[in-house]
Simulated assay, not measured.
Amino acid sequence: MHKSASRAPSIGRDDLIGAWSLVEWQILDPCDDRVHYPFGNDAIGLLCYTPDGMMNASIARSTREALPAGSPRNANQAAQAEAFSTYFNYAGRFEMRGTSVLHHVQLALNPAMVGTVQLREAVLEDQILQLKGVESIGTERQRTHILTWRKQAQ
């Protein structure tokens, strides 16, 4: 997604409503000056925003091992850990503030995210939505997550 020298186009709440497919999830880490792809460069995902102000984000590695037959709760700890480490999800309310979207997390795969507010700078160009967020690691390090989504046809 390119940026012009002028302001980014404005984005409103209604622009987000609908379903979005993940194009790419990058993490930029200034410590090693590389681009990281947490679930590979072919990760899959679905982001949904509803008219009543709810959202849900799910992302997974495109090639995940199936859990053994039967209940996933009966899978061994290694299989459960692998399933956890190749999937990401949270859901809750959302709101717009200027060009930022705030996700108020009510439910998440990672319980530590519940009750947090995930701030994402949003840029919309045609049917491509880019959400950018900063992750603090300790007190002296930050990484930037850039998630690019494509609007699904209705």
Rank of each mutant, 00 (worst) to 15 (best):
N56G: 09
W149N: 02
T116V: 00
M113F: 13
V23I: 13
I27V: 13
F84V: 12
T116H: 01
R120L: 00
L22E: 00
L28G: 01
V35A: 01
Q106L: 13
T86S: 09
Q26L: 11
S4N: 10
V114E: 03
Q106K: 10
T63N: 13
Q130N: 13
Q152L: 12
A75I: 03
P30R: 01
A81D: 14
T144Q: 13
H36N: 07
Q80N: 09
A91P: 04
T148D: 04
P68G: 08
W20A: 00
R13I: 06
M96F: 06
C48D: 07
H2E: 14
R73G: 10
H104V: 11
E95A: 13
V105H: 06
Q130G: 12
V123M: 08
A8Q: 08
R143Q: 12
G53T: 01
L28S: 06
S136D: 14
G115C: 05
I44G: 09
Q106A: 13
P72N: 03
V101E: 01
G70K: 06
H2D: 13
S62M: 02
A69V: 09
R64S: 04
V101C: 10
G40H: 07
A75C: 01
C48R: 15
S6F: 08
G115F: 02
S71Q: 02
R143F: 00
C48Y: 10
N74T: 10
S58K: 09
G18N: 06
P38A: 04
Q127R: 15
Q118D: 08
L124R: 09
H103W: 05
R97T: 06
K3G: 12
A83Q: 05
Q127L: 12
W25C: 02
A112V: 14
P9M: 02
H145I: 05
I59S: 08
E65G: 09
N74Y: 08
L102T: 03
A112P: 04
I44D: 11
R61V: 05
Q26C: 11
T116A: 02
D52I: 06
L16V: 02
L28H: 13
E82V: 10
P68W: 00
A19L: 15
R141V: 12
K132E: 15
Q106M: 11
P72M: 05
P51G: 01
E82R: 11
L102I: 11
M1V: 11
F39H: 05
I17K: 05
K132Q: 15
G138N: 02
F39D: 04
N76F: 03
G40F: 02
A108E: 09
Q127G: 10
M55Q: 05
V114F: 04
T99I: 09
R73K: 11
W20L: 02
C31K: 15
I27R: 00
L119W: 14
R64K: 04
R93W: 07
R64V: 06
N89F: 12
C31P: 09
R7A: 15
R141G: 05
R61C: 13
Y37N: 03
L47K: 07
G92P: 04
L147H: 11
M113Q: 12
E135R: 15
R13N: 05
G115N: 07
D52K: 10
S71D: 09
I27P: 00
D52T: 10
D15P: 09
T50W: 01
L46Q: 05
M1D: 06
T86W: 00
P9V: 01
M96C: 07
T50H: 00
E121H: 12
Q26N: 12
